[in-house]
Amino acid sequence: MRRRSAWRSSARVALAAAALLACAGAPRLRDPAKSGVWGYLRLVPHEGVRAQDIAGATGGYGDRRYADAPLVDYSKPGFAVVYLDGEAVDGPPVALALRAGAAGLRFEPDTGAVAAGGRVVVENRSGAARVVSCPAAGVLRRVEDGASLAFQAGRAGELEVFAPDDPRARARVFAAPGPFAAVDEAGRYALLDVEPGARRLHAWHSRLPPAARAVELAPGTVTRVDLELGVGHAGGEGGDAR
């Protein structure tokens, strides 16, 4: 009897823990009059390519035209942004630092997301004066060591930031035209306390074609929408509204 009682108690604890984990998946709104959407972004390999064959692989593609392009690791989302259209947002600037090392110049971090119209700030910590360029923003300026350069991401889309002294030193910034979130290492994103209604949810990736789908966001609910990105593939799966 004691063994059965202990087993039942353990089973109840396990079920309770599973229920808590399931509930913890859906984020909560701060404003009950607003809405939200969350989910996971998954990368889908091109037909005939298996994700497990690419994960952890080194080198480039077999086609000589893309010999210098690193393989896309479909097991990881990498730098990707999910955003909604139709609502202007404010947000903090993207902060980049230009540093020098044994391998040359580099930006840290080398990716970032900002609201369209927001600021990009580049601080030169390389130990010498450097030229910083962002063609999409019309920026080409010499920045002294220890000084910073700030410019506006005036339009939505991708901006590349360069240090012409070293062709390998570059950073990618995505300027979103609406509420946005960069996905985490697991591919998870969450957009909370946004205006309810019929919206379009977009997914952008630095190496893959973008995708979009229509969503209906109800007041007081957080809807799960899982998205997929890949060459020749764009889609998503709607989930429960919570």
Score class of each variant (00 low, 15 high):
Ala214Glu: 15
Arg141Leu: 05
Gly146Ser: 08
His205Cys: 12
Arg142Leu: 12
Asp165Ser: 11
Glu123Phe: 01
Arg170Tyr: 10
Ala198Phe: 08
Leu159Pro: 06
Gly118Trp: 07
Ala211Val: 12
Leu149Asn: 02
Asp166Leu: 01
Thr223Ile: 07
Ala137Gly: 06
Leu201Tyr: 09
Glu185Phe: 11
Glu160Phe: 10
Arg141Asn: 06
Ala186Gly: 14
Val161Ile: 15
Arg119Ile: 05
Phe162Tyr: 15
Val121Asn: 02
Gly178Tyr: 05
Ala169Thr: 01
Leu191Val: 06
Val121Cys: 01
Ala137Tyr: 03
Glu195Ala: 14
Ala128Phe: 06
Asp145Gln: 05
Leu159His: 15
Phe180Val: 01
Glu123Gly: 03
Arg170Phe: 09
Glu144Val: 06
Val173Ala: 03
Leu159Tyr: 15
Ala129Met: 09
Arg199Trp: 12
Ala153His: 03
Val194His: 04
Tyr189Pro: 08
Ala128Glu: 14
Val143Gly: 01
Ala175Trp: 04
Phe162Ser: 00
Ala211Asp: 07
Val173Met: 02
Ala113Tyr: 07
Glu195Lys: 06
Arg168Gln: 13
Arg130His: 08
Gly187Ser: 08
Gly112Phe: 05
Arg207Glu: 14
Asp166Glu: 10
Leu191Lys: 10
Arg199Cys: 07
Pro177Val: 08
Leu201Cys: 12
Val121Ala: 03
Gln152Tyr: 01
Gly138Thr: 11
Val143Gln: 00
Asp193Asn: 13
Gly154Phe: 05
Arg199Tyr: 07
Pro210Lys: 11
Val139Glu: 03
Pro209Arg: 13
Gly220Leu: 12
Leu217Gln: 11
Gln152Val: 10
Glu216Cys: 11
Arg155Ser: 14
Ala137His: 01
Arg155Cys: 09
Arg119His: 11
Ala198Ile: 03
Ala153Trp: 04
Pro177Arg: 12
Gly118Met: 05
Pro196Tyr: 09
Val161Lys: 01
Pro164Lys: 01
Ala186Trp: 11
Phe174Gln: 05
Gly118Ser: 07
Gly197Met: 10
Ala190Cys: 13
Ser148Met: 05
Arg119Lys: 14
Arg207Lys: 12
Arg172Thr: 14
Ala136Val: 03
Leu192Tyr: 08
Gly197Asn: 11
Arg200Ser: 12
Ala136Trp: 00
Ala129Pro: 08
Val122Asp: 00
Ala214Arg: 15
Ala198Arg: 15
Ala182Asn: 02
Arg141Tyr: 02
His205Tyr: 10
Ala214Cys: 06
Val131Lys: 00
Gly178Cys: 08
Ala212Glu: 14
Ala163Arg: 02
Ala198Ser: 14
Ala190Ser: 15
Val173Asn: 01
Pro135Gln: 11
Arg119Trp: 10
Leu201Gly: 08
Arg142Val: 12
Trp204Ile: 05
Phe162Val: 04
Val222Ala: 09
Pro196Phe: 05
Ala136Ile: 00
Arg155Ala: 15
Ala153Asp: 10
Ala163Leu: 03
Ala176Ser: 15
Leu208Pro: 09
Ala156Met: 10
Ala136Pro: 04
Ala182Arg: 09
Ala175Tyr: 04
Arg172Pro: 02
Gly178Pro: 02
Pro167Lys: 01
Val143Asn: 00
Asn124Thr: 09
Gly157Met: 06
Glu144Trp: 03
Ala156Asn: 06
Ala153Met: 07
Gly118Glu: 06
Glu144Ile: 02
Glu160Ile: 03
Val132Ile: 15
Arg200Asp: 07
Tyr189Met: 10
Leu149Tyr: 04
Ala169Phe: 03
Ala128Arg: 15
Gly220Val: 09
Ala129Thr: 14
Gly112Asp: 12
Asp145His: 12
